[in-house]
């Protein structure tokens, strides 16, 4: 019988899902992914997770508890950092051990530790992790190696497809191409372009983001998310700061916001902040301060937690969109007036 490996569908799974699932599939394990966040999972998480954890971590607890009786292994890696200098969130390191401590009856947890910044882990460590996990499922070392290689290839291919090149971004900013296939595009006279910034596990999780992504899409708005931004562009923005932004996953978010604030090339920025998330509390404040110093692109920050209601969020987004449209119309009128006066002068 195949061994079943469970993946809680939250937090870093949104970033590394292809890598993890491909690897275990190639090893011959049965993949069990928890369903998309729903009310049952949320209730489980809110009930059993520590009170002060951020909302996303609480959901992770819910996903894990949901999988509890359905799998033989749980895969919860402890990722300290995947960059030479910059680190991740401390909760990613401790999640597996905290879960083991709080719920002793969980199935066996596979928890490889990887930290590039503080422990200088590199390729050799990855190889060791691959083998230590692989021998639990198969005794054939070549199969393990091939599985690892295929997994990394698949992940890098996925990442490449997700990211846009700078040219494409430039074209999009000048409204020559559309990122999303919008069928209702015609409804709007002038298409709106909005950057939806936040952690990938918030934006892509329809439940915790109160369905904001689909809501914007259904209104014919073209959106871009931080994980689609070209990496060079973000690094470029980060060099302008007089300190090193050492939370690796926060870099993308702040970089995206700063890029659009500086270039003033899109209609608005919508930032999703998770309640009591550590890095978010800082980048939220930084974005707000940078935006107020260079006003031009409107910025709306929404703080989400388990009590956020769809109606409340909807009202605020509608107000935001109305504001953008009024602003655009005002600008268009002003340009027309300017043109008119030019013609009259001649």
């Amino acid at each position: 019988m195949k061994k079943r490996v469970g993946f809680p569908n939250a937090l870093l799974f949104y970033k590394f899902s292809i890598l993890w699932t491909t690897f275990f599939q190639e090893l011959g394990a049965e993949i069990v992914i928890s369903p998309k966040t729903n009310k049952i999972i949320k209730d489980l998480g809110v009930k059993f997770a520590p009170d002060e954890d951020c909302y996303s971590t609480k959901l992770y607890f819910g996903h894990t508890l949901y999988l509890k009786d359905k799998v033989d292994f749980l895969f919860i890696p402890r990722i300290g950092s995947d960059h030479e200098v910059n680190v991740g969130c401390p909760k990613f390191i401790a999640l597996a051990e905290v879960l083991k401590s709080m719920f002793p009856d969980l199935p066996k947890i596979i928890m490889p530790f990887f930290s590039m910044a503080k422990k200088n882990h590199g390729r050799f460590k990855i190889l060791r992790i691959i083998f230590s996990i692989g021998f639990r499922f198969t005794l054939n070392p070549f199969r393990i190696l091939i599985a690892g290689k295929r997994a990394f290839d698949a992940q890098s291919k996925y990442d490449e497809e997700l990211k846009f090149s700078e040219e494409e971004l430039h074209k999009w900013e000048n409204s020559k191409i559309f990122l999303q296939n919008l069928s209702i595009q015609e409804q709007r006279k002038t298409p709106l372009r909005i950057a939806l910034v936040g952690h990938p596990y918030v934006i892509n999780d329809d439940f915790s983001s109160v369905n904001i992504k689909n809501l914007l899409l259904s209104r014919g708005i073209d959106i871009i998310t931080p994980d689609q931004m070209p990496k060079a562009l973000i690094e470029n923005q980060m060099e302008k700061l007089d300190y090193n932004m050492y939370f690796n996953y926060a870099r993308e978010i702040l970089g995206t916001t700063m890029h659009f604030i500086e270039n003033n090339s899109i209609d608005g920025i919508l930032q999703l902040i998770i309640f009591s998330c550590g890095p978010d509390s800082l980048i939220g404040e930084m974005s707000a301060r940078y935006s107020s110093r260079k006003p031009g692109t409107p910025l709306l920050q929404l703080v989400l937690d388990e009590l956020s209601s769809e109606t409340g969020v909807l009202t605020r987004i509608e107000a935001f969109l109305d504001m953008i449209e009024r602003k655009n119309e005002f600008r268009r009128n002003e340009e027309n007036c300017h043109l008119h006066s030019l013609i009259l002068d001649h």
């Binding site: 300290g80 680190v87 401390p90 300190y243 509390s281 800082l282 404040e285």
Partner: peptide, 16 residues
């Protein structure tokens, strides 16, 4: 430069 917000105190306080 660790897994803590302490390193960001001064940048954010400076902005404020």
């Amino acid at each position: 430069h660790s897994w803590c917000r302490f390193g960001y105190y001064w940048p954010v306080q400076k902005l404020i």
